[in-house]
Design a protein around this nucleic acid. Structure first.
Lengths: 325, 325
DNA sequence: GCAATGAGGAACGAAACGTTCCTGATCGGT
DNA sequence: ACCGATCAGGAACGTTTCGTTCCTCATTGC
């Protein structure tokens, strides 16, 4: 038999790794790589098939084996550079750059970072610090991927964490809590934790945490405050951040406005007014932001609502006028 | 022995999958899940360790096993939602949202899509169509992730592709080529292909391809035109797209400008002029774009260079002035 | 101190293993 | 049509690995 214990299992891992590279592998070449005979390669291919990994074969002079999509996700074997790319991409996604899947991105990231060799982790950190961020006017405060994964790791390891927290009133306090879940709701990250000192559950806005660190002390798990933690978080959140909004009549066809505004139109609307104009309704954090973004249209407009927006437009008009003297 | 062939190997895959979830697993619980005795679980843990996957153990009443980072990347076992999140994140990254790693992101994406079950692929497509894109003023033309993976898959499978192509002069032609490499250079994607009809290598801008489809016909690989294909592509590219640039004196401290401009400053610079002002140098595709982005600063400014920028600022000033009457 | 966890050796009967040898099918190139 | 490349898969063989049982020992939290 082969020279080491677990030779068959190990060889199956190696075979799977080879088969995930984007090429075909003739049986004789696999046999050479794996130091066995071609009959054993065929045995191994049959074992992988039995385990649910669909290996496809092509006969003939340019034939060979390759792995194709089946009904289940096989284990994914990534090269170093690929693993780094996945980690950076997931960090970006879990930070909100891709809306709607922050939590699943974070779960995948946590899983990857749990097994990512340290030398690759440093590469991820280096790349992250140079990664282009979305425009400052993105929705929701940006949250550092490091912080999210630190919290997720502590929750996984059942370790208490400590941080400085400033609530809505601005008052600061140091907290030592048992982290349970990270929930993404309303484009923000919330931590659901148990505070032993207050003997009760608390929800924390992750972007308000400072100096977050793991304590190394472990805790026994408690039952969560609700079956659906995301709903529980939502029910705890009261006033949605007040937003500015406005309406402007734009001398541009509606479809051009949609094309230029794209994602910024979420929550707003465009109503045609004839062939060459339309009524644009949009929101932003402040009226100054609204006034600024109207500039992206590169078209004449009139302010329909509100007086605050008209005031912000006038301020911006004054600034550009002074600059063009 | 256990009831099926490949029982040991299959069980190792299952064990690896369980160990990648973010929790600890006591031996007796693993034994129950895997339908073996705890001694066999310990045997299996030893096999995984021999294969390079470091399983850490904690003794005591809340003890158990978990997988930690070693020196090699283990096979990554993703849940359905996590795999979808990775695929969408990688598509976003390979489309240019994360600069500097488009190619490794594309390689990872190609590898993932090769094995992603179709039912998850549909989820990825659906999510992608709802994914928020970066601002229209991103750098380089956006390229659809689908198109990149179609080309990458055809290259992997050695299948000829056909597409309509419009070159710089605007002339269109239908091409049938052998795709070899996708290269990201200067924030654009290029396809390196062999054109059998012209019997020569050609480089195509991916954003100029239309109606790209695989033909199903396969080809024999040729030697690439150069050892370093990326360098070869670079040498083929002549005139860099002309850019507009300008200098403005801004009444804002330099560090505030940096904070607000962030990634848009790449290629530009900020030089302090006293404590409350600075000279800002920046580039964009057009002077109109430059004039627009200066607005993000929310501060008074004067145009230092160039006359074209001053003209664009005056146009924008006029527009805001008319809107505020 | 107790009861939970992991560590690991020895022995056993049973099963799986890789290899050798072989026949048969498919497929591209000449 | 033929040749030489590929995959498919059965049979037989000697060898190795396997899971289980049983046991002792160590660590750790309550």
């Amino acid at each position: 038999m082969s020279e080491t214990p677990t030779a068959t299992s190990g060889r199956l891992f190696s075979l799977l790794s080879l088969l995930q590279t984007p090429r075909e592998w003739p049986g004789p070449e696999l046999a050479s790589r794996l130091h066995v005979t071609t009959r054993t390669v065929r045995n191994d291919v049959e074992r992988l098939r039995a385990l649910g990994y669909p290996v496809e074969a092509t006969r003939g002079p340019i034939g060979g084996y390759r792995l194709v999509a089946g009904t289940a996700m096989p284990p994914l074997l990534l090269e170093d550079e690929e693993a780094v790319a996945v980690a950076v991409s997931l960090r970006t996604a879990s930070g909100g750059a891709v809306s709607g899947m922050e939590e699943s991105a974070l779960r995948a990231l946590t899983k990857l970072q749990q097994v990512l060799p340290k030398r690759l982790g440093h590469r991820v950190d280096a790349l992250q610090s140079h990664t282009a961020r979305v425009a400052p006017y993105s929705r929701g405060p940006a949250v550092d991927g490091d912080l999210l994964t630190l919290i997720a790791n502590a929750a996984r390891d059942r370790e208490l964490i400590r941080f400085d927290y400033s609530d809505r009133s601005g008052a600061g306090s140091e907290r030592k809590v048992e982290p349970y879940r990270l929930v993404n709701w309303g484009r923000r990250w919330y931590l659901v934790a148990f505070d032993p000192q207050r003997d009760d559950w608390r929800t924390f806005r992750v972007d308000r945490l400072k100096e977050t660190r793991s304590t190394g002390h472990r805790f026994r798990l408690r039952d969560l405050p609700a079956e659906d933690v995301a709903q529980w978080v939502a029910s705890k959140i009261r006033a949605v951040q007040q937003q500015a909004y406005g309406k402007v009549l734009v001398r541009l066809p509606a479809q051009d406005v949609v094309a230029r505004m794209g994602p910024w139109l979420e929550g707003g609307g465009v109503e045609p007014r004839g062939d060459a104009a339309c009524l644009l309704t949009m929101g932003a954090r402040t009226h100054a932001d609204l006034a600024f973004w109207i500039g992206v249209l590169d078209a004449d407009f009139e302010v329909v609502e509100s007086p605050e927006l008209a005031e912000a437009v006038a301020r911006l008009a004054g600034r550009y006028a002074r600059a063009s003297r």
